[in-house]
Design a protein around this nucleic acid. Structure first.
Length: 587
RNA sequence: GCGCCCGUGGUGAAAUGGAUAUCAUGACAGUCUUCGGAACUGUUGGUCCAGGUUCGAAUCCUGGCGGGCGCACCA
């Protein structure tokens, strides 16, 4: 039983024994360490519904009042009295880890744990190592996570980078939930836009075109869009290309298309690998389109409706926030909506996850609200097990990014630019690989520190910092501890926790890691990990500043402090992994 | 018009309905004959407005004000 579970059940028992109404209460770490290691609002949760000797019962919207037994009135009318009673009850339960219980503020109960508990915690951090902080929230479940879905003719740009940072972090967080996690990407392979690009490539280079640079494809995409808009005479040919691609009819365009598709997947994997992602499988938009169209047709007219030659979904009138959307257009082609229905079907038939996460731009919220509403009518589990994680947009120096318009910073360019700065900053003459690792940390950090859904104005001059709250700061702290360990080793000092020492703030912070991980899991919230790691690093650096950790003159104290520092490093490393950020030994 | 999202120190962000709103940056003042200064310590300054619900509101509800976005065959 964990200490959390022990405290929680002790509080429950106390409430039950005192005759309190059944309420749900929180057990959390106080923001301020001086308040203790845990706090509960149980007293106030009871006091809330009990006022002036009466119990207020919220049933639906009617509030009913019941007279509380007279002999208990005093207890429940005064939070301090109730708090005293609960405190006494828990003290009598003699939970060995508790040092003291205090009543504070309007009626909070604060728990402080004994030093001996932290000696045990230190030991268990080393025993568990990479597993420390792991949760069981989704133990035994299968989770599918789809993110970083590229358009195969557009280079991986800063927007994809944002999607990837959030998606990859969620993948790592879900892996820490005890679930079996499978990753997937959903590349856009065929579309009218792609046909426009193929048109340009065919015209410029002919059927023998061999792709060697992603920029050539990206330029063709941009140029194709422009040509199509400016010159109506090419429309017919572009549509013919699109048809040949969709139907896989042997032609010069199909040959070019297939070469480009293969080239792009290799490119995509090289970029995402650099960013630390791996994809177990792909579902292409073209296959989802075929499948989705079939399903929509099978469910017309019971779910979908024919309207003006198209097949549309009309949501119930009560749901005013949902729009009517076209699923199959009047030419008989599946739209993005039908493709997403097909995607759902393929995901659940191939992987059959208990939970299916997908990460997209938040502009697609209205789209997915409708798609999931329709999907729920075809197959309830599709809707129930799907969770949409929307993220904001990144603007670059104030300008909104759209790769269709060109001039968009590419992921690789940004990494290079930031890595250059990291090289300059480095004192230890980092190699290029380390500089890139730091650059990626800085970029990912700036994305993950905010709630997904918020827009980020990305300006390398100001948003990318190597100091203060930043990815490199966390990495630096990790590397700093590595140096300490190395120094200790040369002096023959190995970590050894001295039980007689009072627990430090730093150790009290490491205790909080598992709670933070659980919150991050249940809320799909990488920013909780970021906030926590900053606090951990800051607390460590204060500790470092205030104490000489490795001191030849006092090997016993050194060994003790080394044990604390090493445990901190384990937590820091595990936390960084949850963000998809690497923890360097040197930088 | 209908609907969705957002509004926190000068700037960028955090905060399952909880205590004195957290952190960075900026500015100012310090620490160090460095265990890696990408560090540490201190000062400064903030919840858009008005009501409401609650023991308790940045958070929930109503109405304003301000910003972003979507509303049929693009993705």
């Amino acid at each position: 039983m964990t200490i959390q579970e022990k405290l929680h059940s002790a509080i429950s028992e106390a409430l039950k024994n005192l005759g309190a109404p059944d309420v749900s209460f929180s057990l959390e770490h106080p923001k301020n360490l001086s308040h203790g290691d845990f706090m509960t609002n149980a007293v106030l949760k009871v006091f809330g519904p009990v006022t002036h000797g009466q119990i207020k019962t919220h049933f639906e919207k009617n509030v009913t009042w019941t007279v509380w037994p007279a002999n208990l009135r005093e207890r429940f009318n005064n939070p301090k009295v109730l708090a005293e009673d609960i405190k006494k009850f828990i003290e009598e339960a003699n939970i060995s880890e508790i040092e003291k219980i205090e009543i504070a503020g309007p009626g909070f109960l604060n728990f402080k744990l004994k030093d001996s508990f932290f000696a045990e915690l230190n030991k268990s951090i080393f025993v568990q190592g990479e597993e420390f902080g792991k949760s069981h929230v989704h133990a035994g479940k299968k989770i599918l996570a789809e993110h970083s879905s590229p358009n195969l003719f557009k280079p991986f740009h800063i927007g994809h980078m944002m999607n990837n940072a959030i998606g990859e972090s969620l993948v790592q967080i879900m892996k820490f939930s005890g679930a079996d996690v499978s990753t997937m990407s959903f590349p856009s392979d065929i579309s009218l836009g792609v046909a426009k690009a193929v048109f340009v490539l065919l015209e410029k280079f002919g059927a023998d075109f061999i792709p060697t640079e992603i920029s050539v494809l990206g330029d063709a995409y941009v140029e194709g869009t422009k040509r199509y808009d400016d010159d109506e005479s090419v429309h017919e040919r572009v549509k013919e290309i699109a048809d040949n691609l969709y139907s896989e009819i042997a032609s010069p365009e199909l040959s070019i298309f297939e070469k480009c598709k293969t080239f792009n997947i290799v490119y995509f994997e090289s970029v995402t690998e650099k960013l630390g992602s791996h994809f177990d499988s792909y579902i292409y938009e073209s296959e989802a389109g075929v499948d989705g169209k079939k399903i929509v047709e099978e469910n017309t007219p019971n779910v979908f409706t024919k309207s003006e030659g198209a097949t549309v979904y009309i949501p119930d009138e009560s749901q005013k926030n949902l729009n009517t959307l076209v699923f199959i257009n009047s030419q008989g082609n599946p739209t993005y909506e039908a493709k997403d229905i097909g995607l759902l079907d393929l995901k659940f038939s191939r992987i059959n996850p208990d939970l299916s996460l997908f990460v997209t731009d938040h502009h697609q919220i209205p789209h997915f609200d409708v798609v999931l509403d329709a999907a729920g009518k075809i197959n309830k589990t599709w809707k129930e097990k799907s969770v949409h994680i929307p993220h904001g947009r990144m603007s670059f120096k104030g300008q909104k990014m759209s790769s269709r318009l060109g001039g968009v910073p590419l992921a690789t360019e940004i990494i290079e630019t930031v890595a250059d700065e990291a090289m300059e900053k480095s004192e230890k003459n980092s190699d290029r690989a380390t500089a890139e690792m730091i650059a990626i940390a800085a970029i990912k950090f700036s994305i993950l520190r905010t709630k997904p859904g918020q827009n980020i104005n990305f300006d390398p001059e100001t948003s990318l910092s190597f100091e203060g709250d930043s990815g490199p700061y966390l990495q630096y702290t990790h590397a700093r501890i590595s140096s300490l360990i190395e120094k200790a080793a040369t002096l023959g000092i190995s970590p050894s926790y001295k039980s007689s020492e009072p627990a430090t703030d730093l150790e009290r912070v490491t205790l909080q890691f598992s709670t933070v991980v659980e919150n991050a899991i249940t809320e799909y919230a990488p920013q909780h990990i970021v906030t926590y790691l900053l606090e951990l690093a800051r607390t460590f650096n204060s500790f470092y500043g205030a104490n000489k950790i490795i001191d030849e003159a006092d090997t016993e104290t050194s060994a003790h402090r080394l044990a604390i520092a090493s445990a901190t490093q384990v937590v820091l490393k595990n936390g960084l992994k949850l963000l998809g950020i690497k923890a360097p030994e040197k930088m």
